[in-house]
Computed example of a mutant assay.
Amino acid sequence: MRLKGKTAIITGGASGFGAGIALKFVTEGASVLIADLNLPLAEKVAADLGDMAHAVRTDVADSASVKAMAEAAIAGLGRIDILINNAGTTHLPNAMEDVTEADFDRVFAVNCKSVYLTAKHVVPLMKAQGSGVILNVASTAGVSPRPRLNWYNASKGWMNNATKGMAVELAPLGIRVNAVNPVAGETPLLKQFMGEDTPEMRAKFIATIPLGRFSTPQDVANAACYLCSDEASMITGVCMEVDGGRCI
């Protein structure tokens, strides 16, 4: 029960890494708000987790929607101890000049602007209470880029840099900010990263991971739980690789 009595917002919490984090956090005693564009799926995940979980439809790239998410968290949870910026998207593998402008804008709106918007609407609440933890779910792509995913790589590198800047600025106010950098995992985005989901393509990706497997939602959730718990009270500005050694 390392998160007993804590409250958390998890964006993109209806599937993949977000759903894994929600399950882990509830198991460890936290109350969670699952914020996702797919409200029916978010409500199903919340129902499966029981009374400690709630759901709200959120478009993380829209300021009014993120503001409503923060208000829903205060109304339903009473306060916001933890914010998980997990919602993310990618473009299909392609030559950098052939990625459409619409896909570029969507990737940066979901992966980068969302961090700005949650800071705009949640950080003032954390400042007022004098405490808080923010965890950004970035990617090994932001540390060791893969070819043909250039703008996705760049968006996740942006997240890692933003994490460190946020950590330095917010540390004197009692707010910690860290990131996790997962390797490709069994999530809805996996097929988009690979371009096609075939045994051959999976083997090609796994061959780049020394531990020999994809990451799982549980792997990321375990790291998130530690970084958001009081056990990590001296840790801020860290971008932890959860990658089976891919970035070595």
Rank of each mutant, 00 (worst) to 15 (best):
L23N: 14
S155G: 07
C228E: 01
K191F: 08
N160Q: 10
C239K: 05
P124D: 11
I34E: 02
D243Y: 04
K4Q: 11
A232V: 04
M52R: 05
G5S: 07
R79M: 12
V115Q: 13
A61I: 01
D243H: 11
L135P: 05
R2G: 12
G174E: 14
I9N: 00
Q218P: 00
T89D: 04
P210N: 15
A221W: 02
G244N: 10
A14R: 02
W151E: 13
V26M: 06
G157L: 08
L33E: 09
T89R: 10
I82T: 06
E186R: 07
G185R: 04
A70K: 07
L92D: 11
A73P: 02
R57S: 14
A19W: 09
L189D: 05
G29V: 05
G157E: 09
G174K: 08
T11R: 03
K191L: 08
E196A: 15
T90N: 07
D48V: 12
A30S: 07
R176D: 05
A232G: 10
L149V: 10
A223T: 07
T7G: 00
D105M: 03
S233Y: 05
T163E: 05
V45R: 12
L149D: 07
V56M: 01
Q218G: 03
R202M: 14
P182Q: 14
C112Y: 05
V60I: 10
A119C: 03
I209C: 07
N161K: 12
V133A: 14
N150F: 05
L33D: 04
R57W: 03
P40E: 08
K4L: 04
K191P: 02
K164G: 11
S233G: 08
L33Q: 01
L77N: 03
E71F: 09
M240Q: 15
F104N: 10
L37D: 05
E28M: 06
M69R: 03
G142H: 06
A87G: 04
R106C: 03
T140A: 04
V107P: 00
T187N: 09
T216Q: 07
L170T: 10
G12N: 08
L39A: 10
T100Y: 06
G142P: 06
N181D: 11
E169M: 01
K67M: 11
N136M: 10
D197K: 11
V123Y: 10
S215E: 04
Q218I: 13
L77W: 02
F25S: 01
I248M: 11
A14K: 05
A70Y: 09
D48L: 07
A223N: 02
K6W: 06
S114Y: 08
N150H: 11
R79G: 00
D36Q: 02
T208A: 10
T90E: 01
P210L: 12
V66E: 02
A167F: 14
N178D: 13
I21S: 03
Y116S: 06
G88S: 06
V32C: 01
E231Y: 13
E231A: 12
L149P: 09
E231H: 13
L92G: 06
S215Q: 03
E43D: 11
P199E: 14
V238S: 14
L33S: 04
A162F: 14
S139T: 07
V110W: 00
T58S: 00
R246Y: 14
